[in-house]
Each structure stands twice: as structure tokens, then as C-alpha cells.
Design a protein around this nucleic acid. Structure first.
Length: 466
RNA sequence: GGCGACGUGGCCAAGUGGUAAGGCAAGGGUCUGCAAAACCCUGACCACGGGUUCGAAUCCCGUCGUCGCCUCCA
């Protein structure tokens, strides 16, 4: 079985074949750190986390690089407004984003370069482009010469002529062509700046990713990812820069996630329709957002509203319930039931792989996990023992693990388990004596303490509910 | 105006030629001292109009609608 994935460059699904067998060089565009990140940013990081986890599950060694853009107009502007140091400002949001990634159970990239720490590499990259005639200095700036790049526009499917037509491009006398873009910007008074052959200044937005890729992953990479709002101009320009410099294809596969939609519109800072990650996590578990992402195609817009959050939250609970143990007094399920369960575990694994191999169809794969959950619940109801449920639950745990779902939420509470067990045992006797008021009282009060009891014919089970 | 995507039951959403996965919600039922969970049952003329085909949600054309990019954006 091979993995196929949709390549924005060719606009079709292609069989995935890394440059070097067994190794995947993955570069994902990270955020510009000038304010609190919102759940749309989280969506992107989750999408590529799921992609990475799956590739690793399938045996690839993934080298994952995600950059932080910490030198940028917006950062400078904001820092000026707040009368503080731009580096300091960026640092705060980098640290915050790192914390979010941890909270969201997103595997950290192996390398997280920052623009401010890669200046030599960036300047060298620009110099290389100047040397080759793909870039030209102009009054302290350096611009990329788009007309020299024959296939400029091939990622986004645009032609230079079309773009000029209705576009709102500033007329700039220093540019040879209106679509030429800045590789280096001369410093203005009071801005952070670095030395370069063209005078003090700072890099343009696009060059950093080309330089960092080159530096950390080499001239060619396997997967380049990011939000689909980056296709043009950012990724288009990265291709132009990188390929002009090296003369080789840059990224083999371009993978783009869809945008988070809030009330029918793209969630974004400028529209003011956003929910910060912090805000979301203060009200919901991290797994809820992950499940929302999993439940739809990564390439499509993701609907974000209360109903969807609620549905994901309940779905999560259902997955969790699948992992709940057999009833205490389970006597063993009929052979027929166990056979069905075993069969379901097998087919679920296969179907899960088939779905994920098909361009990371996580929603399809998730559907199959729910089928397995039902089979497990049915077997449990039919009095299956812990041992009889084991294999199917192991499969469920393994596959939800591939998704990066944690499911268990007992951290730090496990110590309380023996005491709860004891209470439940005592209550069992109270119930046998039909002292319902007292037994209900125990159940209610435990619920308030975050322990849910559930009574059934085969005994009482309990779990931490928060 | 240019480029691109999408439109599947109340909501979210898989499915790209052989008559529709899954989750949530709703209604009915089973189990149960009650509650909860679980299980079973119920529900889709796949935006609309043409066309291709033995056969289309799935391919082609058109219409309408929504969204994204074209300026910073995950």
C-alpha cells in the first residue's frame, strides 16, 4: 500500500515517494508572532501533526522543521505602539505558541528556526540570487526579478499578465516589474536592522523560508506545508527563490490546509472574528479541537461553531467509552459475539489505513473507529471480560494514538482511584440493602467531585469525568 | 475583473461511475430501583437544469449560491 497525497502543485493526488527512501523532509510555515494565536493557527499545526504522526506510524523517519517569523512589519508596528522591544514582543508570543503546541499534544518540530537567528543564511541566499541575475539591488532594497523566472505563477495557477490587471499593486519606481517582490528591505529609522552588502535592513517575508529550508533540510525537500492562504504569494515566491538559486525542484509535494470558518467567514485577525487558542482551551479539552480537525478533510474549510464543538466533545466521550473496562461481574461473552468483535478489530485496522493512505482521509478513518467502538460496546454489554475486550481495545487505543488523541484524562488523579474503588464497593452493599437514597447521594456527591458512577446489572463502573 | 475550491438527511461530514460511512441532535424501544452509559429501530429524490452512459452524488456543459486567493494572513 502506498500513501497518496494531494499536491497543490499538480492539483491532483499523487503517490507519495520521498527523495530518500524512508525519510521525509517536512517544512511547515509557522506563525508570524505578533499577537495571540487563534484556533485557525492551531488547526494548521494539528493538520501537519496528524500528517507527521501518520507518516511516522507508517515507518517514515520525519525531519520536521517549523519556522517562526519573528522579524516582520506587524511585529515592528505593534512593538512601536506598545513602546517595547520587537524581539521581546516576538519572544513572548513564540513562548506562548510553544505552550499551545504542548497543550494541544502537537509533536514539536525537530528544528524551529527564527528569522532573527538565520540572518547570515538569508543574506547569503539573497546574494546568490543577485549573483545569478535573479535579483537586483535598488536603493538599499533588493528585489526578485519575476520576469526572469520562466514558470513564475505555476503553483498558484496565475500568469503575470492576469495578476497585473485587477491587482492593487503599489506602483514603485524602483521595481523593474510591478510583481517583483522584496528580498531585502532597507531599514527605516528606529527599526531593527542587520548589516548586509546592500546596507542595513531586514529580510522580506518570503526569503526566510527559502533560506531556512536550504539551511536545515537541504536543496530539495519532500513536503512543504501551510495554510492555503499562503499559496500566493508566499509559497509561489518561495519556489521562485529556491529554484532560481539551486536550479532544482524545491519541494516535491505542496500540502495546504483549508481555513477555519467562523460564522461563514475565514477566521482572521483583520476581520476580528477569532477565537484564541487560549480562549478555546480554557473551555474545552485539547482533544476536542483535534477531533474537529479529524472529522473533516484537512483541505476543506473547517466549520467552527458551538454546535460543532459540542458534537466533537460528545464524539470524544464516545471514543473514550469504547476504552472503558469490562463490567466487574462480566462472565464472558458468547463465542459468536467475540468472533464479530475480533473481525471488526481487523477490518477497522485495514480500513483505517486505507482511508489515511488516501490523502489522509481522517474523517473516513474516524468513522471506522466509531464502528469499532460500537462492536466493543456490544461485546461489553454481552458480558465480555477484560481479556476478551483487550485486543479490540488495544487496536482502538493504538489508532486513536496515531491521531494524536490522548483520551485518558486521569493525569494526577490516579492516586485517588483506590479510594474511589473502596467507596464503590461499600456503596454496592448499600445498594444490595436497597438504601437508594443513600446510594444516590453518594453517586451525586461523587459526581460533583468529578467522579461519574454508572450502575448496571453487571456491577458499577466509574470514571473521572473531569 | 482574474485564478481556484465547494454546495450530501436538523447540524458537522466521508464517499469520485453500480442506487448513500460515521458523529451530534431528534423520536421510538431494550436494559435499569432511579440516573447515566450502552444497544436496537426510524429519517437523504446527494443545489438546480441539461448531457454522456446499460447505470452518476460521483464524468461533461450551463444556472444559482457560498467560500478562498489576487494586499498581511495558518
Amino acid at each position: 500500500m502506498t500513501i497518496t497525497l494531494y499536491n497543490t502543485l499538480t492539483r491532483k493526488k499523487e503517490a507519495f515517494e520521498p527523495l530518500e527512501p524512508g525519510v521525509v523532509r517536512l517544512y511547515v510555515c509557522g506563525p508570524t508572532v505578533y499577537s495571540n494565536a487563534h484556533v485557525g493557527h492551531a488547526m494548521s499545526s494539528l493538520v501537519f501533526d496528524i500528517l507527521r504522526r501518520y507518516l511516522e506510524y507508517r515507518g517514515y523517519a520525519v525531519r520536521h522543521v517549523m519556522n517562526y517569523t519573528d522579524v516582520d512589519d506587524k511585529i515592528i508596528l505593534r512593538a512601536m505602539h506598545e513602546e517595547r522591544d520587537p524581539h521581546e514582543l516576538a519572544e513572548i508570543y513564540i513562548r506562548e505558541y510553544d505552550e499551545h503546541l504542548r497543550a494541544l499534544n502537537i509533536l514539536p518540530a525537530h528544528i524551529t528556526p527564527r528569522v532573527s537567528q538565520e540572518m547570515d543564511e538569508i543574506v547569503r541566499t539573497i546574494q546568490g540570487l543577485v549573483d545569478k541575475g535573479y535579483a537586483y539591488p535598488a536603493g538599499g532594497d533588493v528585489y526578485f526579478r519575476v520576469q526572469k523566472d520562466a514558470d513564475y505563477g505555476r503553483l498558484s495557477g496565475r500568469r503575470l499578465d492576469d495578476m497585473q490587471a485587477g491587482a492593487r499593486i503599489e506602483v514603485d519606481e524602483r521595481k523593474e516589474h510591478p510583481m517583483d517582490f522584496a528580498l531585502w528591505k532597507a531599514a527605516k529609522e528606529g527599526e531593527p536592522s542587520w548589516g548586509s552588502p546592500w546596507g542595513r535592513g531586514r529580510p522580506g517575508w518570503h526569503i526566510e523560508c527559502s533560506a531556512m529550508c536550504l539551511h536545515h533540510l537541504g536543496e530539495q525537500i519532500d513536503i512543504h506545508g501551510g495554510g492555503n492562504d499562503l499559496i500566493f504569494p508566499h509559497h509561489e515566491n518561495e519556489i521562485a527563490q529556491s529554484e532560481s538559486l539551486t536550479g532544482q525542484p524545491f519541494a516535491r509535494y505542496w500540502v495546504h490546509n483549508g481555513m477555519m470558518q467562523l460564522s461563514g467567514e475565514k477566521m482572521s485577525k483583520s476581520l476580528g472574528n477569532l477565537v484564541t487558542i487560549e480562549d478555546f482551551l480554557s473551555k474545552n479539552e485539547a482533544d476536542v479541537l483535534r477531533l474537529m480537525v479529524l472529522n473533516s478533510s484537512y483541505r476543506s474549510p473547517l466549520t467552527f461553531n458551538d454546535e460543532v464543538i459540542e458534537a466533537a466533545s460528545k464524539g470524544l466521550e464516545r471514543l473514550r467509552n469504547g476504552l472503558r473496562p469490562a463490567f466487574p461481574e462480566a462472565a464472558g461473552a458468547p463465542a459468536e459475539t467475540l468472533k464479530v468483535l475480533e473481525e471488526q478489530a481487523r477490518t477497522t485496522r485495514a480500513a483505517f489505513l486505507a482511508a489515511m493512505d488516501d490523502d489522509f482521509n481522517s474523517a473516513g478513518a474516524l468513522g471506522h473507529l466509531f464502528d469499532l467502538v460500537r462492536a466493543i460496546n456490544t461485546a461489553r454489554d454481552a458480558s465480555a471480560t477484560v481479556a476478551e475486550l483487550e485486543e479490540a481495545q488495544a487496536a482502538l487505543r493504538e489508532l486513536t494514538g496515531v491521531f494524536g488523541l490522548r483520551l485518558e484524562k486521569l493525569d494526577g488523579k490516579a492516586d485517588a482511584a483506590p479510594f474511589v474503588d473502596l467507596l464503590v464497593q461499600v456503596r454496592q452493599q448499600i445498594r444490595q440493602e436497597k438504601l437508594w437514597a443513600l446510594s444516590d447521594q453518594i453517586r451525586d456527591q461523587l459526581a460533583e467531585l468529578g467522579v461519574t458512577l454508572e450502575d448496571s446489572k453487571e456491577g458499577t463502573t466509574w470514571r473521572f469525568s473531569r
